[in-house]
Amino acid sequence: MNSVIKALAFTSVLILAIVALAYATSSGGLGVLPPESLRPLAITYLRTVYNPENPKFTAMAPEAVTAILWDYRGLDTLFETVVFYGAIIAVLTLYRETYRERDILPLKGLSIVVKRATAVTSLAILSVAVATALHGHLTPGGGFQAGAIAAVAPLVMLIVFSKRFLSDRLSHVQLLTMRNLGLLGLGLTAIALAIVGFAIGEKAFIFQNQAKEMSKLSFPQRILGVPAGGTLLFFNIFEALAVAAGFTLVFMVLLSSEELSRKEIVGEEHGY
């Protein structure tokens, strides 16, 4: 009885909150979102994002969102990446004793029809991921999205072909190496111009993309005749590599057999 009253009170409070907020919104309480005074900020970004006439401030990338993510707010995104890999490392740490071991599951998988269909669709998924990574600075998309798309292929393969099939071909060492190469590439792209500047005695900054007033060094604006957005192309490729490898590692841990995963908690039955 007591719990019913509790649930009723809680639900009515939530409904009351919805009605109050809706009334406040309809009577103009939130105003017209967002305030007019925020528009100049957007205009500054939009005007400088691809502007050959303004070489001191432009990022030379036609996609404003990716340019903001990796150029204007690049340091922000670098620390976001740190949070992301922190979570993946935390997952691997929870299963630190078993994620290296070979699984005892048999090599069985689903039927031959599903396997062949998955083989074709996995290739398609991977090519979409590559296209998303390489066009991240031209169309909506980018490194994280490409990595997340690419990780779908191993996820489907883990279920359809069994875990042994994938882990025999793509070991955790290879995946960790791929992830570390991606992260190394990210770091090197961020400080590449600073290193070059240090070597040849020019001024340059961390996270520098195009030439600035104080520094003449610049990433290439076009590669093979296509706008490359300087650092953005490299950031997207390395990020996609690292995200795809990290996700695949976590999926392999998640989809291990129950017998193997239970080894991790042996000895914890007594005392919570």
Binding site: L41, A42, Y45, V49, A64, I68, R73, E80, F84, F144
Partner: peptide, 15 residues
């Protein structure tokens, strides 16, 4: 164009 800044922030939040 619409404001690109919320989209960039949301991209970070999604990840």
């Amino acid at each position: 164009s619409v404001d690109p800044l919320p989209q960039a922030l949301v991209l970070t939040a999604i990840v």
